[in-house]
């Protein structure tokens, strides 16, 4: 059985002027367009392009805020210091681990939630929809505290509730080691962001043509076959958008780590490393270099997604 998708429907966008000659009207429209959208565009550039350029410049200097007189140009040696240090590679490893685990679990769980919500009785749908927005809307710091308190050896209830699981007892210190700390961090992240993914996937589900489902049913396809051959291929765009956004978002993980472990036991993420260098240690040069490296990682990831998976965000928005 081959994948079944409907041919894309050609979008007809009204064109205000025929190609070739630029009329006065379209020139005026062009000018008005930029006059209206220009300020927003400039502000976006000012709050991101300028800082990252400044960071790239700062990263070339040996510069500590507590010792400003000794600021000196030292080329790429900050990058060399970072890339030859285990701290960076540990942080990168932790970040990638958290990203992969949370995004995979969120996709599967989010899809399950979306499937349930799609079929839900209309009488209870508003209640569930409101509930599902709550994890999304709650402050990450609050969610991190809730999960930390729950697993904490003193204030938590997890140890006494789950003592029947081998390895869990009254004195299990979840934040005493790297593995268990990361597990709780991942749980908190998954709880908070799965609802958002499920809403995106629910919107995608709604776009799967009912005709195809019915046709597959008539042809005797099982539920599982319909899921893999009809549903998933038809919502590929929604899945890819959710995947792209969440991956890049997860890669910036910071809040939960700050609250739960403060980077102890090798749970530092790349964002946390940059924060600690700049804000805590006042090493502007080194911190900037970490920031630039993190930025490059994100650009690389986004590039891989867009080229590798052929995510066409513009067409996903009907912009193509």
């Amino acid at each position: 059985m081959t994948q079944t998708t409907l041919p894309p429907v050609e979008k007809t966008q009204p064109k205000s002027a025929p190609h070739g000659t630029i009329s006065d009207r379209s020139r005026a429209e062009r000018k008005l367009g930029w006059m209206l959208a220009g300020p927003a565009f400039l502000v976006m550039l000012a709050v991101t392009a300028y800082p990252i350029a400044q960071a790239a410049y700062d990263s070339l200097f040996r510069y500590r805020l507590t010792d400003p007189d000794n600021r000196s140009f030292n080329g790429l040696s900050n990058y060399w210091v970072i890339l030859s240090d285990n701290l960076w590679w540990t942080a990168l490893g932790v970040t990638m681990l958290i990203t992969v685990i949370t995004v995979l679990v969120e996709l599967v769980l989010g899809f399950a939630l979306a499937m349930v919500m799609a079929k839900m009785l209309s009488s209870i749908r508003p209640v569930v929809r409101a509930a599902i927005l709550i994890p999304y809307a709650v402050i990450t710091v609050v969610s991190a505290f809730a999960w930390q308190f729950a697993f904490d050896i003193d204030t938590g209830f997890v140890n006494s509730w789950f003592a029947w699981i081998p390895g869990v007892s009254a004195d299990t210190d979840w934040f005493g080691g790297q593995g268990t700390s990361l597990l709780v961090i991942c749980l908190a992240e998954i709880w908070k962001t799965t609802p958002f993914i499920s809403l995106l996937l629910l919107a995608g589900l709604a776009q799967v043509p009912e005709v195809l489902q019915e046709a597959a049913k008539v042809d005797g396809a099982s539920w599982w076959q319909r899921l893999w051959k009809v549903t998933l291929p038809n919502m590929k765009a929604a899945i890819m958008v959710a995947l792209l956004f969440r991956t890049l978002d997860a890669f910036r993980v910071f809040d939960s780590i700050f609250i739960m472990t403060n980077g102890a036991n090798n749970t530092e993420s790349v964002s946390f490393l940059a924060y600690r260098q700049t804000i805590s240690r006042l090493e502007i040069g080194l911190g900037s270099a970490v920031s630039v490296l993190l930025f490059l990682c994100v650009v690389l990831l986004a590039g891989l997604f867009i080229k590798g998976f052929k995510v066409d965000l513009a067409s996903a928005r009907g912009e193509g």
Partner: peptide, 25 residues
């Protein structure tokens, strides 16, 4: 209808995925 629409939307997208810590430093 003006050229640059796509540029503005893609810029918004890039800014949205920008690592916050890279701006903070």
């Amino acid at each position: 209808d003006f050229p640059g629409k796509k540029l503005i939307l893609s810029t918004a997208l890039v800014v949205a995925i920008f690592p916050v810590i890279s701006i903070v430093t």
